[in-house]
Structures are given as structure tokens and as C-alpha cells.
């Protein structure tokens, strides 16, 4: 058997989801016996059969990846519950196995996958999707790249035709639920727990106690970092639109026009508002000298 075939067969076998008992399944999806497949590849010894030896790797694979996903999406887990989360995670990882060398990227396709597989989101699908978007944005804010900052002094005398950028580690989110508050609550509940991506965890999360009473609420949010910590900053609709337009490489003048389209903010109130926003964003280091061409927008 050639190397590639050996590796394909072993990877396929160990990536087969475990049985509910946490052991390897007896049969693959096509009905073939796993013991026979294992015996074709792996030598037994006097203590372990071929399939038992393979099972060590299969359990390790699933425990590692499920632990990593749970560590990255504690809010989603609290929204849909432990058992539903485990079902979702197994289905997601089966459909979207890791394509990155780092576990950090494991959840990169979760939002897209959940939209295509809404049954896994439970009765609060929109809430679950909002939480997924927030938690992926949290990862991006934690270790995403940073560009040269446009400081407060650079803002003096900016021309209307100029284009400025927004830091690539910032995600702008328009949400239907206050998932930022919920995620902060999860963090508080699990304080002290490690969220490292390479540590399997058996920690169980309570569902949010007030979940059934959680009502939709339009939220505009910037997920960013300051002094190396991740923060969620609520934005007004106009702020959100302005930052989104800047990120889309529109000029300052065009961005400001876009920000106030349909706005009920009085014209005379707008200049001081803009001044305060730009001063705050510059002090947070949100603005960059070069607008960045983005592959995909996170905002909606």
C-alpha cells in the first residue's frame, strides 16, 4: 500500500464520528466493518487489536477538536445547550474538517455552515447565528493583524476626498440580539477556565437562565482590542454605517454622507458628533493610514 493511500484510509477512519458511548463505531457510513478496515492497515499486538489501536487516535482526534471548538464558542454552547452543541460540533467538523495548520481557524466556516444547516441552531437560530458571528469576531480581534495607526494628530486637516482604513482586527456587526451582554455573562460564569484552543475540556456550561425571555434588540457593535484585550463597543447606527463605509474604501465625504442617510440626527448636531467619533476612534487606534482591500465583509 502506497503512503498516500495508507494516510487517506487512516485519516478517513479516525475522522469517523465516535459512537454515543465515546468509542469508535463498529461500522463506517457505507456499512463496512471498522475492524476489517483497521486490520488492513494497522498491526495488532498481544494487548490491543488493530481497531483498538486505531481507536486511540480517533478518540484523540475528536476530543481535541471538540474541546477546541467548545473553547472558542462558549456562548453558542450556552445558547443551544451542551447536547445540541455536541451534535452541532460533530456535524460541522464532519462537513468542514480543518483545512488550516492551526486550530485557531477551526470555527472559520461555522457561520456559513450553520446558515446551510439551520436545524442545528435550535429554536433560536438567529440568536445562535449572532453568537457565532460575535465569537468568531472575538478570535479575529484577539490576534488579528494590525496596520499603521492614524493618530489624533493625523486627523487635523484631513481632506474630504481622503480615504482612511479601519484596523483589520476589528469586526463590525449588526446583530438582532444583545449577544455581547450574553457572552460577557458566559465569561463571568466560566472565569478561571482555560480557553486555549489545544486543550480538551469537559466543562459543562449552563444554558442562559433567562434565555427564553431574551428579546430581539437591534445592536450595532465593534469587536476590537485595546491594550491587547478584546472589547465589545456598542455603536450608534450612524457610527456603524460610517465605519462600514470607510472600511469599504469610500472617501471621507462619501462615508459621512452614507452614515447619515435616513438618519434623524439634526444637521447641526452632526459636526460635533463626527468630531467626537473620530477622536475616540483615533485614541483607540482604530483608524489606519491605508484603506485595506478586504476579501469579505463581516458586517451585514
Amino acid at each position: 500500500m502506497k503512503l498516500r493511500e495508507t494516510q487517506r484510509r487512516m485519516a478517513k477512519a479516525l475522522m469517523l464520528p465516535l459512537a454515543p458511548s465515546g468509542r469508535m463505531r463498529k461500522r463506517a457510513a457505507d456499512g463496512s466493518l471498522m475492524s476489517r478496515e483497521a486490520a488492513a492497515i494497522i498491526k495488532p499486538n498481544h494487548r490491543l487489536s488493530s481497531v483498538e489501536r486505531l481507536e486511540i487516535y480517533s478518540r484523540s482526534y475528536w476530543f481535541r477538536l471538540l474541546g477546541s471548538l467548545a473553547g472558542d464558542f462558549p456562548g453558542l454552547r450556552a445558547v443551544i445547550g451542551d447536547r445540541a452543541f455536541e451534535r452541532l460540533a460533530v456535524a460541522y467538523l464532519s462537513d468542514c474538517p480543518s483545512r488550516s495548520f492551526t486550530l485557531r481557524d477551526l470555527g472559520s466556516r461555522l457561520e456559513e455552515w450553520l446558515r446551510k444547516n439551520p436545524a442545528f441552531g435550535g429554536r433560536r437560530l438567529t440568536l445562535a447565528l449572532d453568537m457565532v458571528r460575535l465569537e468568531w469576531a472575538h478570535i479575529a480581534a484577539f490576534d488579528g493583524p494590525e496596520e499603521k495607526v492614524l493618530g489624533p494628530a493625523d486627523l487635523v486637516g484631513l481632506k474630504p476626498s481622503l480615504r482612511v482604513g479601519v484596523q483589520p482586527y476589528i469586526t463590525l456587526l449588526e446583530l438582532s440580539y444583545p449577544v455581547d451582554e450574553m457572552r460577557i455573562q458566559v465569561n463571568a460564569d466560566s472565569s478561571g477556565a482555560q480557553a486555549a484552543s489545544n486543550v480538551a475540556t469537559k466543562k459543562r456550561y449552563r444554558k442562559f437562565p433567562g434565555l427564553s425571555r431574551t428579546r430581539p434588540d437591534s445592536v450595532f457593535l465593534a469587536v476590537h482590542r485595546l491594550d491587547l484585550s478584546v472589547y465589545y463597543r456598542r455603536l450608534t447606527r450612524e457610527e456603524f454605517r460610517l465605519l462600514s463605509a470607510l472600511r469599504a474604501r469610500r472617501s471621507l465625504a462619501a462615508s459621512i454622507r452614507f452614515a447619515f442617510e435616513g438618519s434623524d440626527v439634526n444637521a447641526e448636531d452632526r459636526p460635533p458628533m463626527l468630531q467626537a467619533w473620530f477622536a475616540a476612534w483615533a485614541s483607540f487606534g482604530w483608524l489606519t493610514c491605508r484603506p485595506r482591500k478586504r476579501k469579505g465583509a463581516h458586517s451585514s
Binding site: 494516510q7 475522522m15 487516535y57 482526534y61 477546541s68 474538517p97 486550530l103 489545544n198
Partner: peptide
């Protein structure tokens, strides 16, 4: 080894 056809196991799998 630990990856095959672009899919990563994130494990240190033994060589034949």
C-alpha cells in the same frame, strides 16, 4: 504525518 488532501487532523500520526 497529520494532514491528507488538505485536511488536518492536528495530531502527530506515526509513519509507516
Amino acid at each position: 504525518w497529520g494532514s491528507v488532501d488538505g485536511r488536518y487532523t492536528h495530531d502527530l500520526l506515526p509513519m509507516p
